[in-house]
Design a protein around this nucleic acid. Structure first.
Length: 267
DNA sequence: CTAATCACCTGAAGGC
DNA sequence: TGCCTTCAGGTGATTA
């Protein structure tokens, strides 16, 4: 479900809701979502900050960190004390405060909450966040140049640049008129620059729209995003390309459904 | 190094 | 109505 813009939206909303609150306790209903053996260590710590790297949320506590990955269907829902909870279905973890609670809801159980002492080290295996200013056009091109992977797989891999997922990859490639199967190292500097621009604009525009909701995504207050209203190719198989009116195609690439315009995007 | 497949899970949707 | 297959905003491990 969530890619960079959705996780960023969650981070921004969470900052308004849980910063400076003290955790009273943490309970687990599905033990693979969170290893409850560290519940005692987490309890009584205060939340200092909420940050993000790629698709990971970083909740800084007094002495340690909670790292959250929502994977496909994870949601972090804040409920103030007294607020009614419509359903406890699919609630895997509950983080309790005096003033309310943060529910980790996750239908497919792929999401995880990790408790770590060193967030930087824990997230060292993923590349620089796509919106980090360190990801300049030069840096981007240097990463692309030696790669023989197709560009779709390159953008989906989190080891070079982190945060891009299936939706925003398809959208950025469409806007750049680059075929998803094109070999990364074969992109011209001009194409790479354009793709860099579109990667950033696609992500930033979605953040402006509070992310994209296909089915499950919700922000901490339960609100849907609006960015799905502006997709050019994702989920538009068979519909006409907004640029040239050719039907949008869908193929399987990098193990994922991949949408593109066969007229606008040539290898 | 790269690509493809499976595994982890559940539920919605479509075909028959 | 019911059964079966396929698919889904992700990613890590394993196998060619």
């Amino acid at each position: 479900m969530p890619e960079l813009p959705e996780v960023e939206t969650v981070a921004r909303e969470l900052r308004k809701l849980i910063i400076d609150k003290q955790i009273e306790g943490i309970e687990t209903a599905w033990n693979r979502s969170f290893d409850n053996r560290c519940a005692i260590e987490v309890a009584k710590q205060k939340i200092n900050s909420v940050q993000r790297k790629g698709k990971y949320l970083i909740i800084e506590l007094t002495r340690s960190f909670l790292i959250v990955h929502l994977r496909m269907t994870g949601q972090l829902l804040y409920k103030s004390a007294g607020q009614t909870i419509d359903s406890i279905d699919h609630i895997r973890v509950i983080i309790k405060f005096k003033q309310g609670m943060l529910l980790f809801k996750d239908v497919r159980k792929f999401g995880r909450i990790y408790h770590v002492s060193n967030a930087v080290a824990f997230l060292d295996h993923i590349g620089t966040d796509a919106l980090d200013t360190a990801v300049t056009k030069e840096h981007f091109y240097k990463l692309l140049k030696p790669s023989r992977m197709n560009i779709k797989a390159f953008l989906l891999s989190q080891k070079y640049i982190s945060g891009m997922g299936n939706i925003y990859t398809d959208e950025a490639l469409f806007l750049s008129a680059v075929h998803p199967a094109m070999i990364s190292g074969n992109l011209s500097k001009k194409q790479a620059d354009l793709l860099h621009d579109n990667m950033l604009s696609v992500l930033n525009n979605s953040i402006q729209n509070m992310g994209s909701t296909i089915s499950d995504y919700r922000d901490p207050e339960g609100k849907k995003g609006l960015n799905q209203l502006y997709f050019n190719v994702y989920g538009r198989e068979g519909l006409l390309c907004k640029t040239c009116s050719t039907p949008v195609a869908k193929i399987r690439l990098a193990g994922r459904g991949t949408h593109f315009c066969p007229q606008c995007q040539k290898v």
